[in-house]
Amino acid sequence: MEEIRKKHFRSFAINFLLLAALYAIFLASFKSGILNNYYQGLICYMLINIMLTVSLNLTTGFLGQLPLGHAGFMAVGAYASGIFTKTVLLPPAVSLALALAISSLMAFACGIAIGVPALRLKGDYLAIITLGFGEIIRNVILNLKITGGTSYRGIPQHAGFTSIFWITAACVYIISALISSRHGRAILSIREDEIAAEACGINTTFYKLFAFSLSAAAAGAAGALYASYQTVLTPASFTYNQSIEMTIMVVLGGMGSITGSIASAAVLTLLPAFLSDLAKYRMLIYSILLIVIMIFKPAGLLGSREFSMRRLIAKLRRREAN
């Protein structure tokens, strides 16, 4: 049994080193000018999208529910953090840390408030209620004084590539570690069969709410990073189109695959930027992609498979030995 722990620790260490290397490469290319500011912004945007997609996958892929209000939770986090960092002046790191805490807590609270009534309903109803929530939030933001109407400016830029990179990594770690714990299995059992899960002693109401609110909290944190990086917020960045786009990223990558979410969020953020002519047709391309994937690979690109560095190394070794 000790061995299992060691194995886990080893794969954790490998992943961490890999991540650190990736971070160093990005940082070096920003510092040396190989990648200019535009690309740095794009990479940060991609990381935030990864955070959103992975956290949405918790409810869509792992819990098996279909909410369409992720952009709403992100908006709550973004504005909470924007207003906080602009009005309470603190050292940047402290300010960002507090902003993240406040945003995720507020999004978490909204998750509970929406989740309690919405999660009793199934399928389409949950989608409709969460969609409605997202639109309500956007309209509230548009009409409140404190949120500045059509645009909220002058947010101090506390988040940069470094903080966004590591917070995204932490968020991905938290969600994948949760999935392989007893709480994660409880969430998976609900997706598989709610009645059987209850019969096994899983309080499905609690775990649905838990997964949904946690996913909302992560969206809130992503919103905080977005606000602290962009410095300007407009309600137009949080429409239901955004929620649907995040859902598409989850579905394309594979419901229930964290690796898939990361890959599809990365590709779908970067691709339109590189093929800027295609940007106009983005939604069209998404739709076609979605239809093609649904026909040929209905479980998404990766299904529920995960990439594992340890497994890859083992495979390569075996190949070398042969």
Partner: peptide, 22 residues
């Protein structure tokens, strides 16, 4: 259950692990 209700997409082990949740 009369008509089997397993956690189909999960491993055999996970099916039992879930019952050990409590």
């Amino acid at each position: 259950f009369q008509n089997i209700r397993l956690f189909k997409n999960l491993s055999v082990m996970d099916n039992v692990r879930i019952a050990l949740h409590g």
